[in-house]
């Protein structure tokens, strides 16, 4: 990468971060009930539904089981979010708003199609870019998605045969 390209990337990254910060602070308290799952609305679900097969590429079962495994993982992510404290649910809701909102999806995530239409390659490169971003905020957002999806899938007994985990032992007399 030339020095000029590097500078350009730096400036663009800085602008993206400013937008992100603005969005983070300007989306604060929308009137929500206390019992919601932190804004895990259909739009947020579409983001998670799109990233699940990318994080879990090579981990999910193939064939007929694939879609059931993905659906269960999506539901498990929703359950996990619902079990988090209000402040964390709010942060995740902000993150999902940012990913759903087309301008920030394009500018900050670099995903130019809507989530259901985005290619796996585009999503994988978005996740990798964030994980390697020089902005700690974007790295932390990636870490949150990483933790949500992998917790959701590997807590599922369906995931265990492929990784050789026998599950908890029986406590029966034996």
């Amino acid at each position: 990468m030339s020095r000029r390209a590097l500078l350009k990337a730096g400036v663009a990254g800085g602008a993206a971060l400013l937008v992100a910060r603005w969005l983070y602070t300007s989306t604060s308290p929308p009137p929500r009930g206390t019992q919601d799952a932190g804004g895990f609305d259909p739009a947020a679900r579409s983001v998670v539904a799109a990233i699940i097969p990318v994080f879990l590429d090579g981990a999910l079962p193939g064939g007929a089981e694939a879609s059931a495994a993905q659906a269960q993982t999506l539901d498990a992510v929703e359950r996990i979010i619902a079990g988090l404290p209000p402040a964390t649910r709010k942060e995740l809701a902000d993150l999902f708003s940012l990913l759903v909102f087309p301008p920030s999806r394009c500018l900050i995530a670099g995903v130019w199609s809507s989530w259901p239409d985005a290619t796996r390659e585009a999503i994988a490169s978005f996740l990798t870019r964030w994980s390697e971003s020089r902005f700690a905020l974007l790295r932390s957002a990636h870490a949150a998605l990483h933790q949500l999806v992998f917790s959701a899938w590997y807590a599922n007994p369906r995931a265990w045969p492929a990784i050789g985990y026998p599950g908890p032992p029986s406590l029966g007399s034996g």
Partner: peptide, 25 residues
């Protein structure tokens, strides 16, 4: 080393992550 603790600790995604998980034992 239980599945969730291992999975959230191992870095990366997709096949690279899955390869390590497949070696869990």
């Amino acid at each position: 080393i239980h599945p969730v603790l291992a999975a959230i600790t191992l870095p990366g995604l997709g096949p690279a992550h899955a390869r390590w998980m497949h070696e869990l034992p």
